[in-house]
Design a protein around this nucleic acid. Structure first.
Lengths: 256, 256
DNA sequence: ATTAAATCTTGATCCATATCAATGGCAGTT
DNA sequence: AACTGCCATTGATATGGATCAAGATTTAAT
């Protein structure tokens, strides 16, 4: 379950990710020496909360979730990661990781040790900038997510989640219309702050409205326009769930 | 309402904040040239969303809130700031600010222009580290906050908020037992994702239970132990509100 | 192949909290 | 002092979505 393949240290310029990793990169960065690439499998843990912070990682392929643990023992997923994402930035705070990272499928990461990183930062303004940019981006993403948690109902949050996934895949040159969820319904529910039953009901509902098609983990977006309308926040009874459960004929007017 | 006092550029080593600002600082940082200190007043805006990112700021005194605006126009407060906090880190993402910052009372900030900052980062590993640490800390704080939004009921979130404020004040050498809220009930409600009426009711309830005393914006923590117990998450009917509204005699058993 | 453990779906019920409504207090302005 | 707008409290009612319950389906393990 946790077989890891270690390759030889190599230069960034030979990496398949170059151009994507540290998105807007200058020439100097491609000489960054990377200690190793590793392959992990589903459920493998990259690092756990409390573990010593000694490197940051870039996800090369696959996907992962990061989560924090409450005093109560409850796990809270704070984000999902896709290829190109920087992972481990939480460690700068106090020298050990606050989050833990678990892979959702077979994935590979590029590891950049702290020493290597600091050397690179000392020499390259653009590496400094890219790292700060990555962290700033993470911060802004969480802010937007906060906003949706506090201001959207369940249907809007789930729609928003699907649209975000869609755009993540498109950014990476994959289809934003048809894609596979690498996380379980439990993960989605946890992330979006709702019950798993609600996730299930809403997916079914979106399917019944011909907005998406769901087949297990496979999602197909049938009507992007309608899906976008699902997250328009309006006053009054909530759009999708309420409409279907209590006022079966209202939803057509809202969406069509 | 928005008179601003600009002082001469000065060195960090003469600053009243040194030792607190960039918390664990080495000698090199105290030579950072700061372009200006400014004083702002209640409701003044430090920068607005979309504004060009050209500096980061350190709050010297007072308090502020940062918020993002939804497409719907809804404002979502993402954090409150107190002296020593780094402000403006959201700008690294794409060169303009994603958040906007509004002061809650008369406050002063130290402005560090990007040029100055980059020069300092090139020269000092500890400045690089401190900046990364500040961002990482902000990220981890938001994660913890996410956790509380998704896993706690209103009473727990409000208790958690009060406890957090208390510890913020104590960190800064002020009383963690008696303090003034610089934000309105509306701000608190917005931040915690609940209705203003719920905030009001819960404050009253906590007061009735002799856990706190509230007099306008002044909060006095009477029983820290009980307040801490308020955020112990347990299954079953929710602790405070439920107890008082529906089962008047249960709360004693839970808290005492 | 068979069992065991997750995972997902669908239905019925209940409750935490939003929303609606009314009132009072306070700060700033004329 | 009276007006205006903001802020806060308290009560009554409505509801979105959690929780409880049961079953179906899929995946992993022996």
């Amino acid at each position: 379950m946790s077989k890891k393949t270690t390759q030889q240290p190599s230069l960034c310029q030979h990496c398949i990710m170059s151009g994507m990793c540290f998105s807007k990169v200058d020439k100097s960065i491609v000489e960054l020496k990377v200690r190793s690439h590793k392959v992990y499998h589903k459920s493998d843990v990259l690092f756990g909360a409390g573990q010593t912070f000694d490197a940051i990682y870039i996800l090369r392929s696959g996907s992962a979730k990061s989560s924090v643990i409450a005093n109560s023992g409850h796990e809270q997923i704070s984000s999902f990661h896709y290829p190109g994402d920087l992972i481990g930035l939480d460690g700068f705070d106090n020298g050990s990781h606050a989050q833990s990272i678990k892979f959702l499928e077979t994935s590979s990461v590029c590891r950049i040790g702290l020493g290597e990183l600091d050397k690179a930062m000392a020499n390259s303004s653009s590496i400094r900038y890219n790292l700060l940019q990555g962290m700033s981006h993470a911060l802004n993403s969480e802010d937007k997510f906060l906003l949706s948690l506090n201001n959207m109902n369940s249907a809007e949050r789930l729609s928003s989640f699907l649209l975000d996934l869609s755009s993540q895949f498109e950014k990476r040159g994959l289809s934003g219309k048809v894609f596979d969820l690498s996380m379980t319904r439990v993960d989605i529910a946890n992330y979006l702050g709702m019950a798993i039953e609600t996730v299930s009901r809403l997916l079914t509902l979106l399917q019944n409205e011909n907005i998406i098609e769901v087949e297990k983990r496979r999602v197909k977006i049938m009507d992007l326009g309608k899906l976008n309308q699902c997250l328009l926040h309006e006053r009054g009874p909530h759009v999708l769930l309420a409409a279907k459960v209590r006022q079966p004929n209202n939803i057509q007017a809202r969406i069509a």
